[in-house]
Amino acid sequence: SELMNSSKLIRMLEEDGWRLVRVTGSAHHFKHPKKPGLVTVPHPKKDLPIGTVKSIQKSAGL
């Protein structure tokens, strides 16, 4: 199965306009000026399962 580095996923979010608002432990929480909701990324993780990545991307509207 495909894995993604959390840094790469965070870069994709930031390029889309998401900004880090809070860190709780290894959970990084992002908000967007125009899009609704809060997106949480486990970080640092070298090997996020593709299912997790897809669900984060979906929440972020990517």
Rank of each mutant, 00 (worst) to 15 (best):
V53R: 04
T52Q: 11
R11W: 11
D47P: 06
P33N: 08
V41N: 00
T40N: 06
G61M: 04
Q57M: 15
F30N: 00
V41W: 01
V41E: 00
E15I: 06
K45E: 10
K34S: 10
M12E: 08
S6W: 05
V39A: 04
F30A: 01
K54F: 03
P44C: 05
K58V: 11
A60P: 02
E15Q: 08
V39G: 01
R22M: 12
H32Q: 00
K58G: 06
P42F: 04
K31G: 07
P44F: 04
L62K: 04
R22K: 15
L38A: 07
A27R: 10
S1H: 12
S55I: 08
E14F: 08
H43Q: 03
T52W: 07
F30E: 00
G37S: 05
L13S: 00
H28L: 06
I50Q: 10
F30K: 01
H29M: 14
K54M: 06
A60M: 04
K31R: 12
P33V: 06
P42S: 05
G37H: 07
G61Y: 02
G51V: 10
S1I: 13
V39H: 01
E14R: 08
L9D: 00
P49S: 13
E15V: 08
K46T: 13
S26Y: 10
S6L: 03
L20P: 06
A60G: 05
W18Q: 00
K8A: 15
L9Q: 02
P42T: 06
E15L: 09
P36V: 08
K58H: 14
P44N: 04
P33Q: 09
K45H: 08
L62W: 03
V21A: 09
V23P: 03
L3M: 11
T40R: 13
R19E: 12
K54W: 04
D16A: 07
K8S: 14
K45S: 08
L48W: 02
P44Y: 05
R22S: 14
S59F: 06
V23D: 07
P36M: 08
K58N: 11
L38K: 07
T24D: 14
G25K: 15
V39P: 02
T40E: 12
L62D: 03
P44K: 03
K35Q: 03
M12K: 06
K8D: 15
I10G: 01
V23N: 06
N5M: 11
L62H: 04
G51F: 09
W18D: 00
I10R: 02
A27K: 10
L20W: 03
S55D: 12
G61D: 07
R22Y: 13
E2D: 12
D16M: 05
N5Y: 06
T24K: 10
K34T: 15
T24P: 01
R22V: 11
K34W: 13
F30H: 01
K35A: 03
I56D: 01
L13Y: 01
P36G: 08
K34V: 15
K8M: 15
A60I: 05
Q57G: 05
K35P: 00
S7Y: 15
I50F: 10
K31C: 11
P49T: 09
I50N: 10
H32L: 00
M12V: 09
V39F: 01
L20H: 04
I50G: 07
K35T: 03
L62P: 03
G37N: 06
I10K: 02
S26I: 13
A27D: 15
S7V: 11
H32N: 05
G51P: 07
N5P: 15
P33W: 07
K45N: 12
L9H: 01
K34I: 13
H28P: 01
S26W: 10
L9F: 03
L20T: 07
G37F: 04
E2G: 09
K58S: 09
K46Q: 14
S59N: 11
G51Y: 09
M12I: 11
S1R: 06
E14A: 07
G25A: 14
T24Y: 08
K54V: 11
A60Q: 01
K46H: 09
R19W: 10
W18F: 03
L20Q: 06
T52F: 12
L48S: 01
R22N: 11
H32T: 00
H29N: 07
T52D: 08
R19N: 11
V41C: 04
G51Q: 14
P36E: 09
D16Y: 06
G37W: 04
G25V: 11
R11Y: 08
T52A: 08
L3N: 14
D47R: 08
V23G: 04
G51N: 15
K35R: 05
V21E: 09
S7Q: 10
P33T: 07
D16G: 05
I50K: 07
V39L: 07
S7D: 14
P42E: 10
D16E: 06
P44T: 05
M4I: 09
R22W: 15
V23W: 07
F30W: 02
D16L: 05
V23A: 12
K58F: 06
K54L: 06
L20N: 05
V53S: 04
N5D: 15
E2K: 07
K45T: 08
T24A: 11
G61R: 06
G37D: 05
G17H: 04
S6K: 02
K45R: 13
L13G: 00
T40V: 12
V39T: 04
S1A: 12
V41K: 00
G25N: 13
L62R: 04
L62E: 03
I50D: 15
